[in-house]
Design a binder for these strands. Structure first.
Length: 827
RNA sequence: GCGGGCGUGGCGGAACGGCAGACGCGCUGGACUUAGGAUCCAGUGGGGUAAUUCCCGUGAAGGUUCAAGUCCUUUCGCCCGCACCA
C-alpha cells in the first residue's frame, strides 16, 4: 500500500478493472432469490446534480448490500431521453440536432455515473429515444388503442404558451406549467387521451397492496384520484323537454335546493342565455370567466358571482320552480358541470344565497333543536334528521342519502353515482422530440392505426425547429404524407408526439430484456424479475410518473403482457439536497457540482457524505466541512491499515472463541458493529447511523492497534479489519476494494458474502446498571450480565451509596428492569 | 380550509417508554513538529460549586406513568401536498 490515500488513482484503477471484468453484469436467471433494485432514470440534461448523486448512491448501497447478501440483483440504468430541453437547445443554439444534443449529454452523464462507481449492469442500458425502444412505445400505444383506452377528443385543454404544447392535468401545478412555471391557458383542441379514469377504482383499491410505500405518497395519490360517492339527479327545465343533471354528494338535501348554478361553459347555459333579459351582459361575463387563467379561475379568494338566466327547473321531489343561474365558481370539468344550491347546509351556498337573497331552507336538524333560517350564521353541515322533506321527515340524514336516491331512481330521475377528480391522461404534445403517435388520418377511413409491421414510425431527422405552437413534424411533408394502410389512398400522419411520461411508464420492464427485437420484452424474464423490489426516487413523482406507471401495469396485466398487479413493491422517496436551507439552483447561485467534489475528494467521499449527513427520506443540508470530515475518515482508515498490511496478510483467518481482555472486547465490538450495520441497512435504510457505527468501530480499532503486540491477537485484528471493509464496501466501493486486495485477498470484495455476527461474541460479561431514586439517576453499578430482577435488586439495595441516600426514608416501591436499571421510589 | 410531516447543543443529526445529545462538523486544550489549516489524545447542552456533586434542559402548556424527546389532550411555528370538487 502507498503511504498516502490516493483516491484518484484508486478509483480509476477499479472502475477500469470492474468494466474489464464486467463485474456487475447480471445473468437473466439464477437459482438465487431475485432482487430488482431500481432508481428513477434521469433525463439527460447534461450533467449530474447532487440530487442524482444522492438517488444513485442510495440505490447502489441497496444493490451492493443485497448482492453481498446472496440475492441475484438486477440494477440497471438508462435514459429518459425524449423531452423538451433537447428541442429548446436546438431552437436556441441553432445547428444542434436534439438527437445529437441528447447523445452528447448521455455520454457525459454515463461517464459521471461510472466515476461514482455505481454498480450498474451497463449491458442493459438504453435510451427511450432509441428507435428500438420507442418502436415499442408506439406498439404499446396501439395496444391501448385497440383496447379502446386511447381516444381522440376535442376539449378545453391546458396549454403552456412557453413550452408551446398542451399538458396533462398532472403537469399543471397551481395553474402553472410544472416544467417552466408559466401560467397555463385553456385551449380548445382535439387531442389524444388515455382512459386512466377507467382504472380509477383499481388504482385506488390496489393501494392496499402497496405496504412498502410511504403513507404520504399513497395519500397524495388518493387525493388525486379523489373518489366521492353521491347521486346524479335530473331537474327538468320548466316548459321544455330539457333537463339539467346535477351531481351531488348530499341527495339528502334535495328538499332544500333553492337555486341551480351552471358552469359558464355548460352546453345548456348557452341556449338559456340566448333570449334572456340580460343576454349581452351575461355573455360578457361568460367571456371574462373563460379568459381567466386556471389559478384565478379556481382560486377560492375570488368572489362568487352569479347571473340568473330567467329560466327555472323543477325540483323532482317538491315540484317547485327553482331559478337557474350561471356562476363563476362552478367548474365544467367536475361532476356534471353544475351545482345545486342548498344554502342551509353548505357554507359556500349559504354565503352565495346571503349575497343574492336566495331563500335558506332548513331540511336537516340536529336532534332536539330547531334551526331558524333567519338566525343562522353559517350553514349546518353536521349530521341530523330530516325536516321539511315530505315522506322522508324524521329520517337520519345518512339514511336519507340512500332512501332519497332510491326513490329518485324509481321515478327515473336519479341514480347512485361515483365521481372521480381524476381526469383522463392527455398524451398529445405539439413538439418534435418525442415518440410519434402511430396514427394515420384518411379521408375515406378516418382514424387508422399504423400497422404493427410498419413500426417504428421513425422521427424524421431533417426538421425545422421554429417555435410555432404546432408540431415541427407538421412542416415535414415526407413524414406527413403517407398511404392509408386500410384503403391504400392518401393518408396523413398524426404529427403530435407522445408525452414523455408514456416512455417512462414502462421502461422498468424493458430492462429485463433490453435487446429484445421481436417484442417489447420477454415475458419469462419480466415475470422472473418484476415487480421491482425497491424503487428509489424523488417525491416530486408521487403522482405523475408513479400513477402513470401503476396505470400502465394494470393495462399490461389485463393484456396478459405481464403477471404483476403493481410495478413497485417498495418505494423510497429521498429528500432534496439543500444548501443554505434552500434547494440548490442556478438562480440562487448555491449549486455544488458533483464534478468538483469528485475531483477534490473522490467518489467514495462524496457518496459517504451524502449517505451519512441525513436519513434518506429527509432533506439533506450540504456542508463542505462535513464532506471534509468524511474525507478525513477514509484517510483515517487508510492510515489504520497501511502499517498493518503485512501483518494482516499473515494473520490467521479466524480468532479463537475463548478470548479474554482487550481481544475479547475488540471481537465483541466487531460483531456488534456487524449487527448494527446490518440492521440499520436492512430494516430501515438508516445509512447515516450505519456509517456512524462503522466510525465507532474504527475508533475502537485505533485504540486496539496501539496495544503492545503481545497483548493483541492478530486474528482478532484481522477479523475486525475485514469486517470493517466488508461493511463499508457498499458505501465506499473503491477504497474498500483497494485495501481488500492489498491485504492479501483474491477476488473482488464486492463478490464476498456479507458478514454475519456471532451471537455468542456480543454477549457482555458485565453491564452498567443505572440506579435511580425517585426517577433521578443517583448511581451506576457494574454488575454481572444476565442477573434476574430479584438478584439485581438485592445487589443494589446493599450498595453503600444507595443505603446512605435512602437512609431514614420509607421505601414505597422498587422497580428493577433487568439489564437496564433499578428505580427506587422513596418518601 | 382539509390532509401529511417536522420542531432535540453553535451546526448536520442519534436515542425498543428506561443514563437525552451516539457519530460527524465546529470550538477549546494538550502532544508531535521549523511550522500546522496535517496527525494523534482529551474536553465540549446551560447554570451553580473548591469538590466527590447539585439544579435546569428535547417549540409551549397540561395529562398518563415508578419513569416521557418518545404515549394522550390542547397550543404555537415551519415545510410539503390538495383546495370554490358540488
Amino acid at each position: 500500500m502507498k503511504v498516502k490515500y490516493d483516491f484518484d488513482e484508486i478509483e480509476k484503477k477499479w472502475q477500469d478493472r470492474w468494466a474489464e471484468d464486467d463485474l456487475y453484469a447480471v445473468p437473466d436467471f439464477s437459482d438465487q432469490p431475485k432482487y430488482y433494485c431500481l432508481e428513477m432514470f434521469p433525463y439527460p440534461s447534461g450533467k449530474l446534480h447532487m440530487g442524482h448523486v444522492r438517488n444513485y448512491s442510495i440505490g447502489d448501497v441497496v444493490a451492493r448490500y443485497k448482492s453481498m447478501q446472496g440475492f441475484h440483483v438486477l440494477h440497471p440504468m438508462g435514459w429518459d431521453a425524449f423531452g423538451l430541453p433537447a428541442e429548446n437547445a436546438a431552437i436556441k443554439h441553432g445547428g444542434i440536432h436534439p438527437a445529437d444534443w441528447t447523445i452528447e449529454n448521455i455520454k457525459n452523464m454515463r461517464e459521471q455515473l461510472k466515476q461514482l462507481g455505481i454498480s450498474y449492469d451497463w449491458n442493459r442500458e438504453f435510451a427511450t429515444c432509441d428507435p428500438e425502444y420507442y418502436r415499442w412505445t408506439e406498439w404499446l400505444f396501439l395496444q391501448l388503442y385497440h383496447k379502446g383506452l386511447a381516444y381522440k377528443k376535442l376539449s378545453a385543454v391546458n396549454w403552456c404558451p412557453d413550452c408551446a404544447t398542451v399538458l396533462a392535468n398532472e403537469q399543471v401545478v397551481n395553474g402553472c406549467c410544472e416544467r417552466c412555471k408559466t401560467t397555463v391557458e385553456k385551449r380548445e383542441l382535439a387531442q389524444w387521451f388515455f382512459k386512466i379514469t377507467d382504472y380509477a377504482d383499481r388504482l385506488l383499491k390496489d393501494m392496499d397492496l402497496l405496504e412498502g410505500w410511504p403513507e404520504k405518497v399513497k395519500i397524495m395519490q388518493e387525493n388525486w384520484i379523489g373518489r366521492s360517492e353521491g347521486a346524479e339527479i335530473d331537474f327538468i327545465i320548466d316548459g321544455t323537454e330539457d333537463k339539467i343533471t346535477v351531481y351531488t354528494t348530499r341527495p339528502d338535501t334535495v328538499f332544500g335546493v333553492t337555486y341551480m348554478a351552471l358552469a359558464p361553459e355548460h352546453p345548456l347555459a348557452e341556449r338559456l342565455i340566448a333570449g334572456s333579459e340580460k343576454e349581452a351582459e351575461i355573455k360578457e361575463f361568460v367571456r371574462k370567466v373563460k379568459n381567466l387563467s386556471e389559478i384565478d379561475r379556481t382560486s377560492s379568494e375570488v368572489e362568487k358571482v352569479g347571473y340568473p338566466l330567467g329560466a327555472y327547473c323543477i325540483n323532482p321531489l317538491t315540484g317547485e320552480k327553482i331559478p337557474v343561474l350561471i356562476a363563476n365558481y362552478v367548474l365544467l370539468e367536475y361532476g356534471t358541470g353544475c351545482v345545486m344550491g342548498v344554502p342551509a347546509h353548505d357554507q359556500r351556498d349559504f354565503e352565495f344565497a346571503r349575497k343574492y337573497n336566495y331563500p335558506i331552507r332548513v331540511v336537516i336538524q340536529p336532534a332536539g333543536a330547531a334551526l331558524a333560517p333567519g338566525e343562522m350564521e353559517s350553514a349546518y353541515e353536521e349530521e341530523g334528521f330530516l325536516v321539511n322533506s315530505g315522506q322522508f321527515n324524521g329520517q337520519p340524514n345518512k339514511e336519507a342519502i340512500k332512501s332519497i336516491t332510491s326513490y329518485l331512481e324509481e321515478m327515473g330521475q336519479g341514480r347512485f353515482k361515483v365521481t372521480y377528480r381524476l381526469r383522463d391522461w392527455l398524451i398529445s404534445r405539439q413538439r418534435y422530440w418525442g415518440a410519434p403517435i402511430p396514427i394515420i388520418y384518411c379521408e375515406n377511413c378516418g382514424i387508422v392505426p399504423a400497422p404493427e409491421s410498419d413500426l417504428p414510425v421513425l422521427l424524421p431527422m431533417e426538421v425545422e425547429f421554429k417555435p410555432t405552437g404546432q408540431s415541427p413534424l407538421a412542416e415535414c411533408p415526407d413524414f406527413v404524407n403517407t398511404t392509408c394502410p386500410s384503403c391504400g389512398g392518401q393518408g396523413k400522419r398524426e404529427t403530435d408526439t407522445m408525452d414523455t411520461f408514456m416512455c417512462s411508464s414502462w421502461y422498468y420492464y424493458r430492462f429485463t430484456s433490453p435487446r429484445e427485437a421481436e417484442q417489447p420484452w420477454d415475458k419469462d424474464k419480466v415475470d422472473y424479475w418484476l415487480p421491482v423490489d425497491q424503487y428509489i426516487g424523488g417525491v416530486e413523482h408521487a403522482i405523475l410518473h408513479l400513477l402513470y406507471s401503476r396505470f400502465f401495469t394494470k393495462v399490461l396485466n389485463d393484456l396478459k403482457l405481464v403477471s404483476n398487479q403493481e410495478p413497485f413493491t417498495n418505494l423510497l422517496t429521498q429528500g432534496m439536497v439543500l444548501k443554505d436551507g434552500t434547494k440548490m439552483s442556478k438562480s440562487k447561485g448555491n449549486v455544488v457540482s458533483p464534478e468538483d467534489i469528485i475531483a477534490r475528494y473522490g467518489a467514495d467521499t462524496a457518496r459517504l457524505f451524502i449517505l451519512f449527513a441525513a436519513p434518506p427520506e429527509r432533506d439533506l443540508e450540504w456542508s463542505d466541512q462535513a464532506v471534509e470530515g468524511c474525507y478525513r475518515f477514509l484517510n483515517r482508515i487508510w492510515r489504520l491499515v497501511e502499517p498493518l498490511e503485512e501483518m494482516l496478510k499473515k494473520a490467521p483467518g479466524r480468532p479463537d472463541t475463548d478470548l479474554a481482555g482487550a481481544n475479547r472486547d475488540m471481537r465483541r465490538i466487531t460483531h456488534k458493529t456487524i449487527k448494527k450495520v446490518t440492521e440499520d441497512i436492512s430494516t430501515r435504510f438508516n445509512f447515516n447511523t450505519a456509517v456512524s457505527a462503522i466510525m465507532e468501530h474504527v475508533n475502537a480499532l485505533y485504540q486496539f492497534k496501539e496495544l503492545p503486540e503481545t497483548d493483541r491477537d492478530s486474528a482478532v485484528l484481522r477479523e475486525a479489519v475485514e469486517s470493517l471493509l466488508l461493511l463499508l464496501a457498499p458505501f465506499a466501493p473503491h477504497i474498500t476494494e483497494e485495501i481488500w486486495e492489498a491485504t492479501g485477498h483474491a477476488g473482488s470484495i464486492h463478490l464476498q458474502k456479507w458478514p454475519s455476527y456471532n451471537p455468542a461474541a456480543i454477549v457482555e460479561d458485565e453491564i452498567t446498571i443505572v440506579v435511580q431514586i425517585n426517577s433521578r439517576v443517583r448511581d451506576r453499578m457494574l454488575l454481572p450480565a444476565g442477573l434476574t430482577a430479584g438478584e439485581m435488586q438485592e445487589l443494589v439495595m446493599h450498595d453503600p451509596k444507595i443505603l446512605r441516600l435512602t437512609e431514614g426514608k420509607k421505601i414505597v416501591k422498587i422497580i428493577p428492569v433487568p439489564g437496564k436499571l433499578v428505580n427506587i421510589v422513596v418518601k
